[in-house]
Design a protein around this nucleic acid. Sequence first.
DNA 1: TGTGAATGTAAGCGGCGATTACACGGCTTG
DNA 2: CAAGCCGTGTAATCGCCGCTTACATTCACA
Lengths: 234, 234
Amino acid sequence: MRRPAKNPPPTGRRSNKPRPAVAARAPAAKPYHHGDLRRVLIEAAMQLVGEGGPEAVSVREAARRAGVSPGAPFRHFPSRDALMNAVAEEAQRRFRAEIEMALADAPSGDPLGRFRCLGIAYLRWAMKNPTHFEIISSRRFFDHDRSAGVSSDNAELIGLTERMLAEAFSAGQLRIQDLKQVQIAGRALVYGFARMHIDGHLPRWGVAEAEVEQMAADIVDLFIAGIAGPAAKV
Amino acid sequence: MRRPAKNPPPTGRRSNKPRPAVAARAPAAKPYHHGDLRRVLIEAAMQLVGEGGPEAVSVREAARRAGVSPGAPFRHFPSRDALMNAVAEEAQRRFRAEIEMALADAPSGDPLGRFRCLGIAYLRWAMKNPTHFEIISSRRFFDHDRSAGVSSDNAELIGLTERMLAEAFSAGQLRIQDLKQVQIAGRALVYGFARMHIDGHLPRWGVAEAEVEQMAADIVDLFIAGIAGPAAKV
DNA sequence: TGTGAATGTAAGCGGCGATTACACGGCTTG
DNA sequence: CAAGCCGTGTAATCGCCGCTTACATTCACA
């Protein structure tokens, strides 16, 4: 948790004649007001998360990177947790975009195929953005239920899997009766693999970094094969 | 992360005639030396983990509960991380004991049954000790590879699953060829479910607290059924 | 043009991990 | 049995943290 002593050069204080435009514009002088500090703080925090994980985020460091005083962020976020919340919402936005993009390409006539596609896309994003995935997954870093956006996104995703499985069952693609069990098991599978990646378990289990993506696809396929019925062509 | 201001009563300093026994024994007076501070610190930290998760552990609070000064713990642990390491090793010891006990009851003639039994025991312990499970699972709280004990325990468990699956395959209990995929998928499944529990996802996915244990068993069975071959009676 | 709201700075509180100098006392050794 | 070493405690201190308060500056609008 120790800060690495960034040693920021004390940039000159007082400005002479800042431009009245919204965004910072003066070349050498710094305007008193930042322009869009809130946005910049979130981006700085996102970057910190990417560099050292969720706990590497400190309000002071974000302020440092934004070039403002340690107290400034508290004008925009009442607490560190609130900042983390904003970061989580941004991460969730990107995650959702990835999922939607992947599903847009999947044929609607094959629900089980779409289910598989969802699993693959889920894992692909989690593999590529482990620290951001961790933020939106693990309580501790922000309170899921405190953010309406994240919560509703999540509920939507849950409902989506439910519908997919129901359709797959209707189409005779499943041989398992209890759809809820399938849903939970599938979710546990992909979440577990993503978590193993984040938590650094995969090397210990003999999965090298280069094989990770292939293995992710393989276990999703293995799971699908395990639940697929005679009508599915897996 | 804020401490809740424990307000410890300032117990009298100087002792008169402390007993020369190893453990503290004087009724009202406190000996200068603690007796077994290391042990007590680990226990205090374990308790803190149980109360508020891994990040609720602070060296100062552990010292407070042990009734010593804030600097005392550093005689036994060079850093907070070292304390967490000791806590993790204790947790790992208990985890391993649970697994071994469960496997002792499983018939050796049914490798796939033993595999299932392992999964159930794994989940049972994780459900009952979520915060301790989190410590030994998530990097961030201690470095797995820094502890020879935890590392070897883990390697042993991994080897165990490997052997079980190989035996099950030889016995014709599996219909899947790629045993490594089965191993990773199985581990991802149980780890994912345990993580969903720890991270508070289960209620959102429609699994109430009372159903958790049953659902854990159900998804293990579902997975086993998915990989079981014609020779297995699942 | 004047003024209040928004948004920045400066200073400071208490808690934290960690280090250092010093105090105590059990144990070995002569 | 006495001496003193060394393991283990305390006290004080450092710098970083989240967060609060008082004050300064600037924008936007009447």
